[in-house]
Design a protein around this nucleic acid. Structure first.
Lengths: 354, 354
DNA sequence: TTGAAAGCGATACCAC
DNA sequence: GTGGTATCGCTTTCAA
């Protein structure tokens, strides 16, 4: 059997408390005794206080959970998510905690269990929007959490760090509109829950259930409405997931029509890159170059010349973790909206004269 | 106070054991009673068995730790590491466990504590080579672990999943040698512990302390020795970390000399991309194009046209986790060497006639 | 300074 | 099918 604190105590001839103090409160005993204890522990091969037992007793785990809606492996596949995680990691590391990655199972029934079983002191929820089940489970456990977007049902003590999705989207759409584009397509992931890839009928941006997508579509719509393009004249393209391939697939369908869009505004850089792929493949069949915009400004966006909206990914993660680990005294400080920047590159250009 | 299992038991008028069974062993009680218990629990707001307490009692945590030598944020910055993690995540997820990221502190004194405090059932050690302190700490805790390379001090029961570094390096160096290159530079990270950026004096590949680097340099050296290029005629370039900037910096120095190398063989794609950056900057000052090779085959390698050695990153992670979670019956199956492939792209070409 | 005692919240064996 | 009881390994008053 592995030795326990008790064994060390017996070996040295002191009580458990004293051994415990030797590890956790060195100032509570003489240096000499402490040395003897640590020495004996070394001889016995005692690995130090068992973290689980210590957590149970102290009521603190020393780990923050990061919750992803999608499969855990996705967390590492999406560049933006990776950078967010890096930020969380940095803050967590500085605080001396650990980072527990919690994949959220697809089946709702298992969501509860996944959250209930995670040994953490709180959660950073990096999610898509339909995370209600997860949030309820977290609340049920009574754990603190931080989301990456304001939520409709947020109470005053809820904490989040996000961006102004609508305004950010509007800024990039204004740019596209200013270039003269009027026949545009908006490209989003899972715009409607089970929708197929490609064009989609959506009564209005407000109908998109996913808050992030909704915010962005709303911003896009506003910009075009301002130049006289009604929502009904806008094409909405659905991608089945947030991947390059899905982005390409979603656009391909629309490209085949007789009046293809002159600009595609995507809700993520990954989708936008996919759109560029599709355009490259369509190639010479297209009469005019099609403008494309992304969202996030991931590393690949720069090399691809993608016009996009930059949001501070690492900073988002860092702040989210900080908000969790050191709750602000004033609850109002728990609501953070990070700045975004329009980054104009070569993927957008003037609309062709029609 | 948050309700505990005891409270639920009291509320329903049964014993703790029964409530526990309601959660963990549904077949041990009648469906009706179980329903009553779960119902009461819901009313009371009982969040289900406390994971920490359960872990303590069961002696199993339900999480695997991934240990990184470098800062936690680095784990997400290096594309190869990210893909490795994705693989681990996949396996862990399938197994119903969680993934605890453990950053290894730079100060040795804190290494022990970091490992002792991690609530995990075992470790995947994704490290650079000087992880001895960490491994000793893991062994001291008596936890199982899997490394990403065979180790010199490996016992028969040690598990690892790696590649044949030497052979892989040899294959790509053979390719470069066959192209006629004789004046070559080898580019590695921290070839010697505290070395500065740029050319380095190294008596032989065996002198590189870091096993991975040592293996690769050895393979490189072999290939050139086979065509008559002695080790002393080879330039060794040191990068201060595994980043594109560091790779560029390391090569820049060498480029300034009067007899720059005609080929640069890097120990990672990231360094190789940095080398390409440096070459692009040097530009027209160079009489001939310089061939560059990488290692790993990360995503950027393809778009950069980098000739490299592909190793299955996700698979490595997946297997490492699998080896940890389901130890093979035969210890011999705990030693896995994954296949690698030489991927020839455009970054290598014939040596200029001298 | 040191130690005795009381849990932290749950599980699992073994009677009933 | 259900409950008693003994842990799991440690921390922490509080008194000596």
């Amino acid at each position: 059997m592995k030795p326990t604190l008790q064994d060390v105590a017996d070996a040295v001839g002191v009580s458990r408390s004293t051994v415990s103090n030797a590890y956790s409160r060195p100032d509570q005993l003489s240096a000499a005794l402490r040395a003897r204890i640590l020495d004996a522990a070394g001889r016995l091969g005692y690995p130090g206080p068992n973290p689980t037992a210590r957590s149970l007793r102290r009521g603190v785990v020393g780990a923050v959970g990061v919750l992803f809606t999608s499969r855990l492996s996705y967390a590492f596949t999406d560049p933006f998510a990776v950078r967010f995680l890096a930020g969380v990691g940095e803050a967590v590391e500085r605080h001396g905690s650990n980072l527990l990655l919690v994949p959220l199972p697809a089946e709702r029934a298992r969501v509860r269990a996944a959250i209930d079983n995670a040994a953490v002191d709180g959660f950073c929820v990096y999610c898509a929007g339909d995370e209600d089940w997860a949030l309820n489970a977290i609340r049920a456990r009574g754990l603190p959490y931080v989301t990456t977007a304001p939520r409709a049902d947020a109470g005053p003590t809820d904490r989040y760090v996000g961006i102004d999705e609508r305004a950010a989207a509007r800024s990039i759409a204004d740019h596209v509109a200013a270039l003269g584009h009027r026949r545009v397509a908006l490209l989003g992931e899972s715009v409607l829950p089970q929708a197929a890839a490609g064009p989609l009928r959506l009564a209005g941006p407000a109908d998109a259930p996913h808050p992030t997508t909704r915010g962005r579509l709303t911003g896009f719509a506003e910009a075009f409405a301002a130049v006289g393009v009604e929502w009904s004249a806008v094409t909405v393209l659905n991608a089945t997931d947030n991947s390059r391939a899905a982005g390409a697939a979603a656009l391909s369908a629309a490209l085949a029509g007789d009046r293809p869009p002159t600009a595609v505004l995507a809700c993520s850089d990954v989708l936008a890159l996919g759109a560029l792929d599709a355009l490259a493949r369509a190639g010479e069949r297209l009469a005019h170059p099609v403008s494309v915009t992304g969202f996030d400004d991931i590393a690949e966006a720069a090399s691809a010349g993608l016009t996009t909206v930059r949001q501070p990914a690492e900073e988002k993660g860092r702040l989210a973790a900080a908000l969790l680990l050191e709750p602000p005294a004033d609850p109002a400080d728990g609501h953070v909206l990070l700045p975004t920047d329009l980054v104009v590159r070569t993927s957008t250009g003037p609309a062709p004269r029609s």
